[in-house]
């Protein structure tokens, strides 16, 4: 599920690129075939597709699960490789909490992710955080399969990435 969302984002982002490319090239490239190949190393798309930009949390928790730690390790390795990249970790909560508490809970989640990246050797000055509480859900059903996707921390590239 997580992967397919990331994939959709890539497809959407790529669509914009291809429209532009279409202006100078006569033959229209195939969107699906291109999506993996065109993630230029060191680009934002490379980070989202090949590293994974988000981790999930258990209900009312900010503890990093083993799966989350794996993703964050990959993120840290990528960030060490592309040392000019800066990121912001967005913390989110599901809708099954109250507004103010969820803002604080999502700050706790973004902080946990940031501290892990820093412990993995990413310079603290390269990683900022923001907390959105329950204000930015990505999955809309009223069931655990959606709420679990919304309990997340998303590492967003804010600068320094290779274009493409």
């Amino acid at each position: 599920m997580l992967r397919s969302i990331a994939g959709l984002k890539v497809a959407a982002a790529l669509a914009g690129v291809i429209v532009l490319a279409g202006c100078s090239k006569s033959d229209k490239p195939d969107l699906v075939a291109q999506s993996q190949q065109t993630a230029v190393p060191g680009s934002e798309r490379d980070f989202v597709v090949n590293v994974g930009d988000r981790i999930q949390f258990l209900v009312d928790q900010s503890t990093l699960t083993p799966e989350a730690q794996d993703i964050l390790r990959r993120q840290a390795a990528w960030l060490r490789q592309y040392a000019q990249v800066t990121v912001q970790v967005e913390g989110h909560a599901d809708e099954r909490g109250t507004r103010e508490y969820n803002i604080a809970l999502s700050a706790r989640r973004s902080t946990a992710a940031r501290e892990f990246l820093v412990a993995q050797g990413v310079q603290p000055s390269r990683v900022s955080t923001i907390a959105y509480g329950k204000e930015r859900p990505v999955a809309l059903c009223d069931a655990e399969q959606c709420w679990s996707q919304n309990r997340r921390a998303v590492t967003v590239v804010t600068g320094g990435a290779v274009s493409g």
């Binding site: 103010e100 700050a107 706790r108 501290e115 907390a131």
Partner: peptide
Amino acid sequence: MSLQQGGNS
């Protein structure tokens, strides 16, 4: 109000 510092408010 609440002020946040890291995971703490």
